[in-house]
Design a protein around this nucleic acid. Sequence first.
DNA 1: GTTTCTGCAAAGGTTTTGCAACAAA
DNA 2: TTTGTTGCAAAACCTTTGCAGAAAC
Lengths: 141, 141
Amino acid sequence: MTKGLRRTRQREVIVEAAFGTKEHYTAEELWEMARRLDRTASRATVYRTLTLLVECGLLREIDLGKDVVCYDPNFLESPDHNHLICLDCNRVVEFEDAHISVLEDCISRRLGFTPTLKAIRIEAKCDELRLSGACRHEKGA
Amino acid sequence: MTKGLRRTRQREVIVEAAFGTKEHYTAEELWEMARRLDRTASRATVYRTLTLLVECGLLREIDLGKDVVCYDPNFLESPDHNHLICLDCNRVVEFEDAHISVLEDCISRRLGFTPTLKAIRIEAKCDELRLSGACRHEKGA
DNA sequence: GTTTCTGCAAAGGTTTTGCAACAAA
DNA sequence: TTTGTTGCAAAACCTTTGCAGAAAC
């Protein structure tokens, strides 16, 4: 009844690419990163491996407000972090807060649920840009 | 320099459908609802009107963890609410919490930002189902 | 009359899939 | 061997868009 997953060179390459960065990426971007390690990596296998990694809980899908799904390899280290997206420069800032996390658990329990995933997304404007007219990170796409 | 938007019958129908429910819906579902009011409503106009409504802030896109974008017509009444999605029955529970909202603002400010949108998504398992083996809402798609 | 809007169908972009060849166990 | 995996190209999906006719102002 076990899944009988196999260790293949393709999967090794994709996993290495997936966790070789701390940046968020799309499926297409992961494909590019994997191809830098092995020119023969195929898009289909990247998609199939991404599905596996997300199912295993090794990788998490995040909503950065873009029109494509993004993946975040940093949840292994800090499983409870959230994302703030700067609308001025598109920079994504990760943050973690124990108080919020506890509150989320309380609210869930009160509603009759046990949370399995908690995600906060904050879209915001940069104070520095508003006050001084310039933002240190403005280049960020 | 003004946008010069026009009041058309098609837009009236789509807006009526969009705010004639408290449920969340996809673009496709809104198209079906609009067609119930007017058989000639076209998909393209639904998409174009959705874009306008979101830009105006009358409607909000929400991430329910599905693979399509969902829209939530309830943000006009309670602009600060969040969503808990039951993984057992797919039911979506809306909740609001002033403490969390304040904490989100504090964290944003500390990071140097002024938030324009705050969204929490919690995926969870139903306690009732786990304890008693049955869930009142199990039918939910 | 001018400008905006609509509907259609085609195009665009992302993700999934059927299948034959291939590789791991 | 047996079973799982890959790569390709096609298919499936959702969303956007060009354009000519229609409607609003």
